[in-house]
Design a binder for these strands. Structure first.
Lengths: 105, 105
DNA sequence: CTTGACACCTAGCAACACTAGGTATATCAT
DNA sequence: ATGATATACCTAGTGTTGCTAGGTGTCAAG
C-alpha cells in the first residue's frame, strides 16, 4: 500500500464490502483488490485482525460456514454496523473534502 | 480530528501550506484551520513533531527569526520537499480515487 | 507428491497523531 | 500592578493501527 495512508479508513472499506452481502475474509481481500483497481491489495495480517476488531465492536457478526468444501468464517453487517457505515461514509466525505480544500485540488 | 483519519496524510497538508511561503509552526496551525474550514484544528503536539520529522528528512529547513517580537522558528520547503509534495499529491489523488471507487461515491 | 492457491490465525513491530505536561514572552483587562 | 489570555515553542509517553512474519490445514493441478 501507500505508507500509512490507509490508517483510519480501512473500516469504511470493510463495512462497504460487507454491506453488499456477507462474505468471508479471503473474499473480502479479493473484492477490495478488484474494486480499487489493484491498489488495495491487502495482506491477511491486515484483514483478519480488522474483521475481528469490527466484530468485537458489534459492527459485524460471523459464523462458520460448514457446507462449503473449505472451512470459512462468513461475516455480515449488524444493524449497528450499518449505522457505523453511514457515519464512516460521512466522515470520509468531510475528510476528503477538507483535504482537497486544503491542497486546492 | 476524526479519529485516525489524518494518519499518513499530514505531511501532504504541511508541505502544501509551506509550498506557498515560509511560515512558523503556529501560523501553519492557523492556515490549516482556515483552509480546511475548521476541520483540521490540530494541536501543537501534532504539528511540531511533524515539522521536526520533515526537517530531519530534508524536506524542510528552518531558521530562527529574531527580528519579530517573539522568537519563531520559520520553516520553508527545500527542493527535495517540493519533489516530495508532488509525490504526495499524486498519492493522495490515487488513494482518494481508490477509496471512492471502492465505496462507490 | 509436491507445488500452489485457498483459508484461517496471531505475536510482535513500526509509525503516527495525540495527550499532557512544561517554558517563556507579549498583550489586554481589571 | 497583576492576572488572564494569546502567542510560540518543546517533548516524553500513550493508544491505535496496519503490517510483517510466522504458523496451521485443505484442496486441486502438475
Amino acid at each position: 500500500m501507500i505508507g500509512e495512508a490507509l490508517k483510519g479508513h480501512l473500516d469504511l472499506l470493510l463495512l462497504t464490502i460487507l454491506s453488499e452481502g456477507s462474505a468471508h475474509g479471503y473474499a473480502v481481500i479479493d473484492s477490495l483488490r478488484q474494486r480499487s483497481g489493484g491498489l488495495f491489495d491487502l495482506p491477511e495480517g491486515t484483514i483478519y485482525p480488522a474483521l475481528h476488531r469490527l466484530e468485537k465492536q458489534g459492527l459485524l457478526k460471523s459464523r462458520w460456514r460448514e457446507d462449503s468444501p473449505r472451512r470459512r468464517r462468513v461475516y455480515e453487517l449488524t444493524t449497528k454496523g450499518q449505522q457505523a457505515l453511514a457515519k464512516r461514509q460521512d466522515e470520509w466525505k468531510i475528510f476528503s473534502r477538507a483535504v482537497n480544500a486544503t491542497v486546492r485540488i
